[in-house]
Design a binder for these strands. Structure first.
Lengths: 232, 232
DNA sequence: CGACGCATTGACAGGGCTCAATTTAAGTGG
DNA sequence: CCACTTAAATTGAGCCCTGTCAATGCGTCG
């Protein structure tokens, strides 16, 4: 399998391949398959579990989890350079999570047998996988604590800042979040409702901290947001 | 290093060593150090990060995280057979978590250099570490969703059931949780306050679902609790 | 231009937190 | 063994944050 040179950088710079020689990386790469998902498409769902693991080359992937009682929690936004559904190497079922492409996305996928062989062949690959898994677990622990300890507004501030760091660009108006982010999504990410998010953004709009429209958020005063996120 | 035969079983049956030959396990074991912690003692804290990773032979270890604003969240209870602070292999600092022995505990510890060498020497060890890390991450994801989606009482019910499955024994009165569990601890575990926990247990006591005293909980009607935990 | 989906805003209620006052139980020392 | 100390647990009162529901506004796209 060849890789588009545009994505090559993302692949080779990923922490996942730190310390692994280029020709070994190419071996790993050559055993995967390219897949593309359009914005809004679903990679796998609670009732249709992941059978392969995916490396994100481009785009943003949203991992969320649906509760029986109807609510949804966004667990992570996955950036290019990260791996998802590594669990599929070990378990066929039992990964009750939805993965959805937020932007058009390019990925590489490996099925479980191939990935397992690669893991045995390249111990450093597994070590890197372990490290990135621990890192993302720690991030979730932090968010778990915040969900427990902080009021909604503070969590929304933190969420905006996290998303800003992950996926934004400077514009003349401020820092624009570069994907469609509705009130509902932000609510799912912070553990609240779209109404509370709307009210909060409304106030912050009047403060001059953000400018927001339909599925579109610009942060005009990041400094104020940071201070609010930290002090509550 | 020798291992007490009483703990030998826990060591060798752990998922961590699945597929690894006995003499290899003994090699791994021989490079660690025995450590004991009395009930209530702290293994490491937010301001005194873990420098080694630990394998739990006996006892129960509580991992919690303190929020700047004062609240504490219990992230996991760690049973015998599990590994903690694997992150210390990769990072010296930056594991802002407190680990405390809930019961008297026996552990094996390895420092980072030794553990890293072992990981390179035994690829299957890393694969197993990856698998258990993914598993515990998934559990946290589930609890994150619950914290977002469920009311306090439902979360308390789930927490009691989880703890019961982890660490309990049958008595004539019912299923006794076999470690000191205060209202405050249960609150930290479920994301609420000790007052709400107290009120809830008080009601369930009148219902005949539980019997509770000072740092002591007996579940007298697990069936009712399960049904409540699932339906809310 | 019409329709659909997202966003806004108000009114209202209630779950659960806070604070304070007791009560209960365990542990300690004489 | 009992008085004393200390920490945990209970319970009530009050209130506020935030979820719920409903009505309306508005931007986007076919």
């Amino acid at each position: 399998m060849n890789i588009d040179s545009h994505f090559s950088d993302t692949f080779h710079r990923s922490n996942l391949f730190a310390g692994i020689a280029i020709k070994e990386r190419d071996d790993i790469l050559s055993q995967g398959h390219h897949i593309f998902f359009k914005s809004g498409e679903i990679l796998f769902r609670e009732d249709n579990p992941a059978l392969r693991c995916y490396f994100v080359l481009d785009g943003l992937i949203k991992l969320s989890k649906l509760h029986e009682q109807g609510r949804r929690a966004i667990i992570y936004y996955i950036n290019p350079g990260e791996l998802i559904a590594a669990i599929s190497v070990f378990k066929e079922k039992d990964y009750p999570v939805t993965a959805k492409a937020v932007n058009d996305a390019a990925l590489i996928s490996w099925n479980r047998e191939i990935m397992y062989k690669l893991m045995l062949k390249y111990p450093l690959l597994v070590i890197n996988m372990l490290q990135t898994t621990i890192d993302s677990k720690n991030k979730l622990q932090t968010r778990y604590l915040e969900l427990h300890a902080e009021l909604v507004k503070q969590r929304i501030a933190r969420a905006l800042l996290r998303i800003m760091r992950q996926s934004s660009q400077k514009t003349t108006e401020g820092i624009l979040i570069t994907f469609k982010l509705s009130r509902q999504e932000l609510a799912d990410y912070t553990g609240t409702t779209l109404y509370t998010v709307s009210r909060t953004l409304s106030v912050w709009g009047k403060n001059g901290w953000v400018k927001s429209g339909r599925e579109r958020i610009i942060i005009t005063n990041p400094h104020a947001l940071v201070s609010f996120a930290e002090k509550g």
